[in-house]
Design a protein around this nucleic acid. Sequence first.
DNA 1: GGTTGGAATGAAACCGGTTGCACAACCGGT
DNA 2: ACCGGTTGTGCAACCGGTTTCATTCCAACC
Lengths: 324, 324
Amino acid sequence: MATLDHVAQHAGVSKATASRALSRPSLVSPATVARVLDSARVLGFVPNRTARALAGGRTGLVAIVVPTLENSFFTPIIRGAQEQAAASGLHLTIAVHGLDSPADIAAFDTLSRQVDGFLIAAPRGADEVVYPAAAGIPSVLIDREIAGLPSVSADTATAFGELARGFIDRGHTSIAFVGGPDRSWQNTQRIAAVQAAAAGRCTLTVLGPYPATVASGVTATAAIVESGATAVISYAAAISLGLIFGLNARGLAVPGDIIVSADDSVVAALNLRGAPSIEVDGEELGRQAMHRLIERIDAPPHSGVLPDAAATKLPVPVRWSPID
Amino acid sequence: MATLDHVAQHAGVSKATASRALSRPSLVSPATVARVLDSARVLGFVPNRTARALAGGRTGLVAIVVPTLENSFFTPIIRGAQEQAAASGLHLTIAVHGLDSPADIAAFDTLSRQVDGFLIAAPRGADEVVYPAAAGIPSVLIDREIAGLPSVSADTATAFGELARGFIDRGHTSIAFVGGPDRSWQNTQRIAAVQAAAAGRCTLTVLGPYPATVASGVTATAAIVESGATAVISYAAAISLGLIFGLNARGLAVPGDIIVSADDSVVAALNLRGAPSIEVDGEELGRQAMHRLIERIDAPPHSGVLPDAAATKLPVPVRWSPID
DNA sequence: GGTTGGAATGAAACCGGTTGCACAACCGGT
DNA sequence: ACCGGTTGTGCAACCGGTTTCATTCCAACC
């Protein structure tokens, strides 16, 4: 296995020069750079990341914390983040936990010694827990906002408000909202948005909390029917799926007898003409978050540039016309 | 940040002794070990993994290659593998690709310099591609067998054969199999098993290939109905979901008018009494595979112990009675 | 009582890069 | 011809551990 020493020797320069030629070519004369690069190629040199990490203080590893892999909401985010990380030569490792228990925090702390930064999708962790964790190492929050920390979120709340208003405008007088985990930040935002839209104009039944599974959608069906709602807003793709199945099983046509909003993917998959859909671009979320994280990591410490605790919001389009 | 030097100084021993006390206590007197451990605790010492990796030749990182995160088949596997890796103090990174294109192989090779081993779930890659890759670094195949390489697979083929026989025994004379990706190893096995069970006893319609999505289940519905099959075997949970929805949409009750086999999770979620289900324990798959991998990694090189290219098969139970 | 062998420990090399500092060569300006 | 200032390069220290080898000490053995 070729090392930097071999390359340097082959190129007839010192190890230091070889190193610079490879990692900061501007410091070395063009001719020398060419020679070193050539030797590296000939010898099949691949820099040892571990050594580089030890010397350079960077591990080349970033982590993303997600509460679960089972929820299809997170997988595109991971894909986008990984793609963006790879573009910068970084590896992405995935830690699966909610950052909301002492054990989770311990895992986070341990991992934080071994990565350059974190992407944190922790909808359930309390602010007081997430903040200190994220503040101690370059981090970007995903789909969650905490004052003083950078974040990238999908503006689902606005989309949900729009859905509610749309339903009302179309004559519905009783709508139901199937809510997610109790302490989820996004869930709180969404409920607020839907409530604001409904206030004084229509009956709103808020159901939940339900985990984001097909099974809970099926379970929720009973409560929906009982509520008398004619339009349903659900917070997760899997739940919509379960709802639709459950309603069908009771002989109710969707969206004929009762309208269920769903993710774009579900509407497209089931070919649900007439159901409104929302579309969260998870990949873009992941990419942008990773981009922000890399900026933070690369920023010289105390550079006094921008603290960049901005909360980016990605628009979430709502589609009312059927998909063709 | 406390380093080994600090600990050694605090404990009044040399760095070498401190290192040994922490990583191989049997080489040091019990009294000294206690003193070092105490100092480490007092100083809040956390060993630097990077340095340890550089000196020890191990990165403490293992990777799992999966073709996609969207298919719910892989997520429990990842969870199990990660759990098992964590138990050995290893980190798991996830590489998402099929190991079936030049770019994928390049990614694999690059990553292989930075991890201690691979878990490979590459159903589609050709033997001639996967073999050399896996042979060059400690690896364990998941849900795929190649002669000469260790593997852990779910014995889905047997379960599928059993399903086919069960349907036939129950009087079905025309069954359909909804197949997965064309070149998938498991798919080939499953088709063979189903065909063997059906041979001469019943009409078998093999459909596909279909990607493992709800949408393709819906799409497949037309072909199912056309085939006249009264029982359907589908290879993925998402497809079953789509099938059931699609059949319902056409006014066919499941499992009343037509029986669809599905994963345990789907049957449970939709409360499908009377439909047979199979249950793949993905977590166990991941755990066992990781266990095997760690054994390989820890085995001294050329130890001449067991080459251990065994192909482990995990049983996949088939359930015919409804779930209560 | 002198020799032998094992246990406990320390000094220093080593893993493979990065980087601060010193130095030489070369630049245009006066 | 002399000088301050780049530019290009090499030496050696350094990152934080692990491991080889030598050394010391002491109990056991002939």
